[in-house]
Amino acid sequence: MISIENLCKRFSRLTVLDQVNLNLASGKSYALVGPNGSGKTTLIKSILGMVKPSSGTILFDQKNIANEWRYRENIGYMPQIGRYPENMKIGELIDMMKNIRQEVNTVDEELIDSFKLYKVLDKRMHTLSGGTRQKVSASLAFLFHAPVLILDEPTAGLDPISVEILKEKILAERRKGKLLLISSHILSDLDELATDMIYIFEGKVQYHNSIEALKQETNELKLNKAVTTLIRQRELLDSII
């Protein structure tokens, strides 16, 4: 559904994404893993058209997304750091998002209910804690029944109960056959949520396969063990070569 071909992104001298090739299919759930600054968020923002690639193309449903905007109707995006107009109330923000996308008739307010955001609709965005902000971001991402969900560190900063609520929601959406792209550092969460793993390091895709295959390759039962084993194996290989 989304195919990325030879994507490169340079910020002046720094190469953030280097020849990234990926094929993301509907019905699968991808875990995007990599150390800080490896280019995960840049990759996500490139798919959304917020970052313009230096070279390479991104196709969404076989159509190049350069200078396109309509394809974003199909994407629900939860940013890593939700930045919103600071003097808006939560309620106003949600209303505004609905109003701007009037073409969507039915909205999915399940998360607003389960996070109990209706109790704080009058709070202004600048008074919110990081966790509440994350809840708002999550609620907005799921609001329009988008067939593609891109979640940038969805569980970071949430309390354990909210994490469970969000995970349940993500699993429910996955069962509907949506494409999910989830970046996270919490591998135990990804173990439950994702079917495939993409490991990026220094802007290059180092590993891309199903999680089952990864576990078999590394002889581990848990994803976090498997990933650390994978990284150690790679480091070992690098040091030999």
């Binding site: 974003r72 995006y77 930045r83 107009p85 600071e86 701007i100 996308r101």
Partner: peptide
């Protein structure tokens, strides 16, 4: 001061 708004809208199906 409306940079956040611009950022938010740019992730929506709206032309830049």
């Amino acid at each position: 001061s409306s940079y956040e708004f611009i950022e938010l809208m740019s992730a929506q199906p709206i032309n830049r």
